[in-house]
């Protein structure tokens, strides 16, 4: 551990740049799927445990399209559209029925969905680890100490544009306003003539499309296997729990924060703790929130 600290801060401080960059790339993907989760959680009170599987499904769709040699700029919208309609179907078949139920119902129902999706993906694409290599150039910096694959930069820019688009959509468009109104007070929204069922439907499908986009980035940056969804779900939950609902800037900050935290824990304490890091972060945040809530004699609900 001491060696690692020395390495990072004394011998080769330049590699911090690489670790920070990796953390940012990781954080960008987390932030996207976490934002989708915050949306469905905040608007319709659904805790979607299948979030990570939507991400992986997006990744596999992107794999399927990449076999036709499409460019990522085409794959991304295609995957998002398909995932949007997939979300619509899932909403109509099951989510609609669990919306008014207590919170555990949605957790378990979506867990069931997660099992189902994992296995269907396993049956369709097989359990092999899959990789998409679009063969984009890799840039060097600082004497080759830092390498930046351009595909990661492209993904980062696309993710940024996407979240900017979503923010604007939420702020400016009629539907976006209706979503926010429903999140604040569904009854009042209904009274004012908003069809909340349609809003829920749209929100869930939008989440699915966002996850699909995150999946495209996962597939071009890391590797795919049908059973990896759970890690993305856990991280999304960690981020949303840490950042709170309906607060996009906080979710994005938390996404990057957790990405960086994970990378630095890995670099300093050891990679063995890289998976434990985000969940420990989640627990720490929860404990701190409890302490601050306790002053007002309240609990974290």
């Amino acid at each position: 551990m001491l060696d690692n600290i020395q390495l990072l801060f004394v011998w080769a401080p330049i590699i911090n740049v690489q670790i920070i960059l990796e953390g940012i790339f990781l954080g960008a993907v987390f932030a996207l799927s976490a934002y989708g989760l915050a949306l469905v959680w905040g608007v319709m009170n659904i805790k979607n445990l299948a979030q990570g599987d939507f991400v992986i499904m997006g990744g596999y769709l992107s794999l399927a399209f990449s076999q036709y040699n499409l460019s990522i700029f085409l794959i991304l919208p295609l995957v998002m559209i398909i995932m949007f309609f997939y979300g619509l179907i899932v909403y109509r078949l099951m989510i609609r029925r669990v919306i008014d139920q207590d919170m555990f119902t949605s957790l378990l129902a979506t867990f069931g969905l997660s099992l189902l999706m994992q296995q269907v993906m396993n049956l369709i694409w097989g359990p092999e680890v899959q990789i998409i290599d679009l063969d984009f150039p890799v840039y060097d910096a600082f004497d080759g100490f830092v390498t930046i694959p351009s595909i990661k930069i492209i993904s980062l820019i696309l993710a940024g544009m996407l979240s900017l688009g979503i923010v604007l959509f939420m702020k400016k468009s009629r539907t976006g306003q209706a979503i926010r109104a429903t999140a604040q007070d569904p009854r009042a929204a209904r009274v004012l003539g908003i069809d909340t069922d349609k809003i829920y439907e749209f929100t869930f499908s939008l989440n699915s499309a966002i996850c699909g986009a995150a999946g495209v980035f996962v597939s071009v940056i890391w590797v795919l296997q049908p059973f990896y969804g759970i890690t993305y779900s856990v991280r999304s939950f960690a981020i949303v729990t840490a950042a709170g609902l309906g607060n996009l800037p906080a979710v994005i900050t938390a996404g990057f924060g957790i990405g960086l935290f994970e990378k630095y824990v890995g670099a300093i304490i050891g990679t063995a703790y890289e998976v434990a890091a985000p969940v420990s972060m989640l627990l720490i945040v929860l404990v701190f929130r409890q302490i601050s809530m306790k002053k007002n004699r309240q609990a974290v609900k």
């Binding site: 590699i15 690489q18 990796e22 990781l26 080759g144 990896y228 990378k263 670099a267 890289e274 998976v275």
Partner: peptide, 14 residues
């Protein structure tokens, strides 16, 4: 569960 070993490889580079 980890599908990222960039941390190790960064150290390798250094």
């Amino acid at each position: 569960d980890l599908s990222d070993m960039s941390t190790t490889l960064t150290k390798v580079k250094a």
